[in-house]
Simulated assay, not measured.
Amino acid sequence: MTVIHSLSQKRQEKQIKYELNILKELSLQKIKEKIKEHFIFFFQSRILYQAIVEETCIDHTIEAFLLGAHFSRFGFYGESIEMVHARCSNEIDELTRSLYDYIICWGKSTNDDLVDESIHLTCEIFVHFWWREGYRIGKQRHKLKLI
């Protein structure tokens, strides 16, 4: 007797396998270095607590990285990076907003719009950096036929 698998089950298994393979390219050490690099000013001025921010940033890094890797197939098939970015701009904005909201919620309250704006800009740059990294790695894997 054979086991019958549904198409959605097969797609989910393939997606999980792809994500596991692409995440092998990501190092926790590099993530932590980039967190410190992007948020160093806020850690030094004690506006943000490093331990709390680090955990959330790691989660958002993985999400942005996988999003970039997933959409890299469009770049492989000829679209420019700007067009691919426009395709997933809603998801990128949602990741940025989510990271910003979490950091503002757990950070020290300053009631300063300039600080809040600079935190938002830093979150945006951080998420975009990891999206580009995922895009680059994903496109590279497509070229090497590792998909």
Rank of each mutant, 00 (worst) to 15 (best):
H128M: 12
E13H: 07
E82P: 04
Y49Q: 11
L99A: 08
I104K: 15
S72I: 03
L48H: 03
F71M: 10
L95E: 02
I92W: 02
A64T: 00
F39T: 02
T2E: 14
Q140S: 02
S118V: 03
K139A: 05
I103V: 13
N90L: 10
C123K: 03
I4S: 08
C88I: 08
Q50V: 06
K14N: 04
R97D: 09
R132H: 15
K17E: 05
F76G: 02
I81M: 09
L146C: 04
I40T: 10
E25A: 14
F129L: 11
I62K: 02
L7Y: 14
W131E: 06
G68N: 05
T56D: 14
I137G: 03
R97C: 05
K10I: 09
S45D: 12
L23A: 03
I35A: 05
G107D: 09
K14V: 05
T61Y: 06
N90H: 11
I103C: 00
N21M: 08
F43R: 04
I81D: 09
T110G: 06
F76Q: 02
G107C: 09
W106Q: 15
A64L: 00
S89D: 14
L48W: 00
S98G: 13
F41H: 11
I103G: 02
H5W: 12
I147N: 12
I92S: 01
I52R: 06
Q29R: 12
L7V: 14
K10D: 01
H85P: 00
I35P: 00
S72A: 13
K10C: 06
Y102G: 03
Y18G: 05
G78M: 12
F71I: 04
I31T: 03
D116H: 05
E54G: 04
H5F: 15
V53P: 01
K24D: 00
K14A: 01
H128P: 01
I47W: 02
R132K: 15
N90M: 08
Y102H: 12
G138E: 02
T2G: 14
E25Q: 14
L114E: 14
R136T: 10
K10L: 11
S98D: 13
M1R: 13
L66M: 07
V127E: 03
C123L: 03
G138R: 05
D93C: 08
C57I: 04
A51L: 09
E19P: 01
D112Y: 06
L7D: 14
I52A: 07
V84T: 10
L144P: 08
E33T: 06
G78Q: 09
L7K: 15
N111I: 00
E133Q: 14
G138W: 01
Y18T: 04
L95Y: 05
Y77A: 10
S6I: 11
V53Q: 00
Q50E: 15
L146W: 03
L66V: 07
H85S: 13
E55F: 10
S80L: 05
S89V: 13
F74G: 06
T56L: 13
Q12N: 13
K36W: 04
E82L: 07
K32M: 11
T110D: 08
H38Q: 10
S118T: 12
N111T: 00
H85L: 11
I81Y: 07
S72L: 06
I4D: 08
I16P: 01
G134K: 07
S98A: 12
